[in-house]
Design a protein around this nucleic acid. Structure first.
Lengths: 335, 335
DNA sequence: ATCCTCCTTGTAATCGATTCCACGAGGAGG
DNA sequence: CCTCCTCGTGGAATCGATTACAAGGAGGAT
């Protein structure tokens, strides 16, 4: 592969001049510039980004450590992050943590070794020593969707409180009184917040959230299935199951179907995070939709602000309820 | 951030010695090694991968240019690629082409500028000049899932011919005779091959595939919807629609549902690529399942073989039919 | 005691860029 | 005609690692 030296030699100039041409430095005579450009074209030369990064101490690359690529919500988030970053002249390197803190650490370490300019993270836990170090060490960092308490890092996330209240209101109106939740890991903010929002919405409607009706999941389908099984084995099972993410909702459906029960006849089902498939499931699933694309884009803008030395605040967007048939017939419509 | 010089200074040795310790060079006295290791720990030193790559001319990074992260099939492929690569000591940088040749080129260029050690691609088209160049230029490269004709690059893919024949047999047994296909872009091999497999399977059963029954899609949901609309507007619409990927199947469902038609009563539906949601759609969708994980892992192994100077052959895995209810009741079961 | 090895370590070149500094040519001003 | 500036360019240092080569010291053989 041709290097800047080859180009310089080919054009009969010094490497300094080639570099100037490549970086649009003004003080290069037009004909010299042309000669260099011709040499570049003839050799098919492309600057070595590795060497450039070493010298300039910037990679124009952002790291994104995501909880789970197989979760359509995060896939969409990753996509919007990449789109916005590209528009702003940055590349994105994605690390998939698969909801595992050890893998998350692995990716954070690898990305920092690669000297990425900034890091976007959806933490899968309460903050490993490594993550805390990274946050303190000065690497520009922004949390998306989930965050870690007590760490001074801007957060771009969705507040689902109102949407959850709307959901509970909807469920209450349909006559449901025994509502259970498949929660995410308590180590994640979204894991805790969604339970809290649910609990306080229930309280508003004079309902309690007994311990039996809180199932500990891990945002993966299998845990949704396991928790649902536990719920359904209860002497007095819930009449609504609210899954804190779409994969656990999938697991819940698996279990409900395996038992030959019907949604919403036997149990109603709702999920946090809306995905295209929810329109076509049997029945279509009522869900809380996040502005995923905007979340990703805002996160990138916030991160790049930090990278380029500007300051940023946290951003909080809001979610909304999308009513379908999985909790019972919406008002005024028929089977 | 501490550099190797700081470590050397702190430990009272030269940078060469630090480097030797870090790379497990045998000729370092035990106590020197300990001193260096202590310094490394005290400073929290991590080698700069950029500098190391520049010197060693290898990044231990693989590039993966994928057609569309939002497609669950590719998300799973990406995940398995990353898993296997990590197990073998490599990182993966993913570029999402969004089925757009220009974006694909952008990512190929960016990845090559970053001097990735090898490139894994699912081409979205017949091969841009850039891609052809890259293939010829000596960058180790392997195609996954899709490939480009006339380029000497190993391919790791699934042969769906038998599964498609099984599907057609299944459809034929259920009494369907008017079968249509929502094809992928003709510029992609999977776009063409799936149509060809379908056509020759139909032929085997004495059926034709009229031009009207081949709809040009682009592997995205919206095109599935558009093509399905065209099919349903035909004076004699098909009684089966086979979508060449899962997103176009989603689009097809959107359109069918929008018209108030029922699956499989009014039209049957089948898809290439199986995804977890297909179990829970209304009705569950019959699909052709690829061994996605194995595909990704085999591709990584093939690529790393090339990177490390071994030779590789192409790998062809096979797909299988998963029968559900979207084409009619399977033999011996009831509604 | 001398010389030869082997072991351990340091010095310095190198990878491919960027960028500070210096230098020569040419034009303007005195 | 000389001095000073500006403009365009080249030389060389630098980023943080790796590694070939050299060198110093210890120990063994003669």
């Amino acid at each position: 592969m041709a290097s800047i030296k080859d180009v310089a030699h080919h054009a009969g100039v010094s490497v300094a001049t080639v570099s100037r041409v490549l970086n649009d430095h003004p003080s290069v005579r037009a004909d010299t510039r042309d000669r260099v450009l011709t040499a570049v074209a003839e050799l098919g030369y492309r600057p070595n980004a590795v060497a450039r990064s070493l010298r300039t101490d910037q990679t124009r690359t952002l790291g994104l450590v995501i909880s789970d690529v197989l979760n359509p919500f995060f896939a969409e988030l990753a996509r919007s992050v990449e789109d916005e970053a590209r528009a702003l002249g940055y590349s994105v390197v994605i690390g998939n943590a698969d909801e595992r803190p050890d893998l998350q650490d692995h990716h954070v370490r690898t990305l920092m070794d690669r000297r990425i300019d900034g890091l976007l993270v959806t933490p899968t836990d309460g903050g490993s020593p490594l993550m805390l170090d990274a946050a303190r060490s000065g690497t520009p960092m922004v949390f998306v969707d989930r965050w870690i308490k007590g760490v001074d890092v801007p957060v771009v996330r969705t507040d689902g409180t109102d949407a959850v209240r709307d959901l509970v209101a909807h469920l209450h109106a349909l006559g449901h009184r025994r509502l259970a939740i498949v929660a995410g890991p308590a180590a994640t903010t979204t894991g805790r917040e969604r339970v809290e929002a649910f609990r306080s919405a229930l309280h508003e409607f004079g309902l309690a959230l007994p311990a039996d009706f809180i199932g500990q999941g891990d945002f993966q389908a299998e845990s949704g299935r396991r928790v649902t099984a536990r719920f359904l084995d209860l002497p007095e099972p819930p009449d609504v199951i609210f899954a804190a993410d779409n994969l656990m909702a999938l697991g819940a459906m698996d279990e409900i179907r395996a038992r030959g029960l019907r949604v919403p006849g036997d149990v109603a089902l709702a999920a946090f995070d809306d995905i295209p498939w929810f329109v076509h499931t049997d029945p279509p699933i009522t869900a809380i939709a996040q502005p995923t694309g905007e979340l990703g884009r805002a996160a990138v803008r916030a991160l790049i602000d930090r990278v380029e030395g500007r300051t940023t605040d946290s951003v909080i967007l809001s979610a909304r309820l999308v009513t379908r048939r999985s909790c019972g017939e919406p008002e005024g419509s028929k089977p």
